[in-house]
Design a protein around this nucleic acid. Structure first.
Lengths: 154, 154
DNA sequence: TCCAAAGTGGACATTGACATCCTATTTCCC
DNA sequence: GGGAAATAGGATGTCAATGTCCACTTTGGA
């Protein structure tokens, strides 16, 4: 349902927010999110073009969030890499269905609208703050398993 | 977001329900739904294997619905050709996220759940009965444009 | 009985998403 | 200035979804 690219982009952004604001290298994000590094690079490029992240070349470079976690929604990320395509006109090109969709496509679009809305209402900050046993994308801290935070610490 | 196959399957089923219960040939459905006939055949085979439709070979054969429109939901059709894959375990295979998903994937799964529920609650009968200007998949009758019903009439 | 209509199923082509690799280019630090 | 670290971006490979085609089977009717 969601493309691999969307899944990867969300993982990367969440991971980045989690270790914000210092940023991280592509390699570090790749390890933490289990996304193949070459692919992750392309995903991050798309996020950079959408200006959700900034990047710094060269030694001690890396990627970092370009916005506060409160201002970044899931929808922003999804739209940056693989926009949700709402059904805004009849896929059959029936002339009489100009603006009004037929009942079938109206229902389908309503489902898409639901996703869009849910994603628009969810900020990164909410995801990070969610009270749960599972830290986003990481092993639970109480097990003292290596998580991405550790990568940057000596 | 929705695969082509899902779109085609839904068109076919709605069209079939609309001209039920006599049924129709693949060619007729193809014309009415603007789905390429060779592809439509494969989609209909999947629907037949899922026992949503029955088919009759030979002259004066064709395809027809195997259930009442009241008993057939959008979800049935979607699941027959391209099932919605809920996220029921951590995509990163983190052991500590066994049953509980991390906040990110929990949100994503909730979005999928929303679609699933919307589709489960929508029957074909509701789509056909919906009070709207646009007949499902067809030009509006008030324009007297050819629709699928006409195909079977002399 | 034979033909035409219609679905069945497998083989084949095309396309786009997914994934990887290699060569720049930039930057820091010695 | 030179080398190591890191991103940028184009070229290429792989595979599943999409789309097409053909030979076969079934069936009703002339």
């Amino acid at each position: 349902m969601f493309s691999r690219t969307v899944e990867y982009a969300l993982r990367a952004i969440v991971q980045l927010a989690y270790m914000a604001p210092q940023g991280a290298t592509t390699g570090q994000i790749s390890v933490a999110t289990k996304v193949p590094e070459p692919y992750l690079r392309k995903v991050l490029q798309a996020l950079r073009r959408a200006e959700l992240v900034t990047s710094q070349r060269g030694a001690s470079g890396g990627v970092r969030l370009n916005r506060d976690a409160e201002e970044l929604t899931i929808l922003d990320v999804v739209n940056a890499v693989d926009p949700i395509e709402r059904i805004d006109r009849c896929p059959l090109d029936l002339k009489s269905h100009g603006v009004r969709l037929c009942p079938l496509h109206a229902r389908m679009d309503r489902a898409l609208q639901g996703i869009e809305q849910a994603f628009r209402e969810t900020t990164l900050a909410e995801i990070l703050a969610e009270p749960t046993l599972s830290t986003p994308l990481c092993e639970t801290p109480d097990e003292h398993v290596s998580c991405t935070r550790d990568v940057t610490s000596p």
